Amino acid sequence: MKKLKITALLAVLAFAPFYANTFAVENPSLVRIIADAIKWKSESIDVGNIPQGKPKLIRFEFTNTSSKPVVIENVAPSCGCTTADYTKTPIMPGKKGFVEASFNAAAAGPFMKTVNVTTSESKTPKTLSFKGVVVA
């Protein structure tokens, strides 16, 4: 009986490497294709010093580098002090689009804000950021 258990164990171990290669692994080229569908001109912008009480418009531009149209599905600013606008029509391959954030600089001091963008190419939001200093 002991020899049977050892033989069975050796048989399982002998075939284990064969089965280990049969499961699909995430394809890195697919990840690269999804990541490259939109090429942002800049994902982070330093606006420097801005005057208090005057809204500041920050524009993020991108190019559709995929082979099909891209639609911006949602743009979500990180706080109520920021509003957003964006290209509402489908962005054709090779064409440019934008996301704009208007920051209401009410309080003096340094700030850093984000805008999350969801597109038809990726349901995972892309986080764009901008920072600066509000001067009184």
Rank of each mutant, 00 (worst) to 15 (best):
A101D: 01
K113T: 03
T127Y: 02
G94D: 06
E43F: 02
A20Y: 07
I91C: 09
P90I: 11
K3V: 12
A108V: 15
A101E: 02
V117C: 11
S29I: 09
S67N: 14
A76Y: 04
A20W: 05
I91R: 08
P93C: 05
T82A: 14
M112Y: 09
P77K: 06
T22S: 11
I6L: 14
V12C: 07
V47L: 00
F15A: 12
T119N: 08
V25I: 08
P90W: 09
D85Y: 05
R59C: 15
F23Y: 11
E26F: 07
D85C: 05
F60R: 03
P17I: 12
S120H: 08
V99D: 05
K5N: 13
I6T: 14
V70G: 08
P51K: 11
V71C: 02
F130W: 07
C81M: 04
S129Y: 00
I91K: 00
S129L: 04
A35C: 00
K123I: 08
V25D: 01
V117N: 13
N21Y: 11
I72L: 09
N49M: 09
N116F: 03
V135D: 11
A108G: 10
T82F: 01
I45R: 09
F62Q: 08
S129R: 10
P28K: 00
V115F: 04
V115R: 01
T119A: 01
G94V: 11
F23K: 12
T87H: 10
L128T: 03
G132F: 12
K95G: 09
E43A: 13
F60L: 02
E26L: 10
V133E: 12
S42V: 09
I91E: 01
D36F: 03
K54Y: 04
A8L: 15
S122L: 07
A11Y: 01
N104H: 10
P51D: 04
S66M: 08
S29V: 13
A76M: 11
I58Q: 03
S67E: 09
S129G: 10
K5L: 13
T118Q: 03
V71R: 13
V75M: 06
G132W: 07
T124E: 11
K96V: 07
K2N: 14
Q52P: 12
A16V: 06
T22H: 09
I38D: 02
G94H: 09
K5E: 10
L128D: 00
V99P: 00
T127Q: 13
K131H: 07
I72E: 00
G53S: 11
A37G: 10
K96S: 13
K113F: 05
F15Q: 07
D46C: 05
E73F: 04
A24G: 09
G80S: 15
T114W: 01
M92D: 14
N64K: 05
K2M: 06
K113M: 12
G109H: 07
S122F: 02
P93S: 10
Y86T: 12
Q52G: 15
A14Q: 02
G132V: 10
K5V: 13
M112Q: 15
G97D: 00
F111D: 03
K96M: 10
I6E: 13
V117H: 10
N64W: 06
R32G: 00
T65Y: 07
A101M: 12
T7E: 12
S44T: 15
G109L: 06
I72Y: 00
F18I: 11
S120P: 04
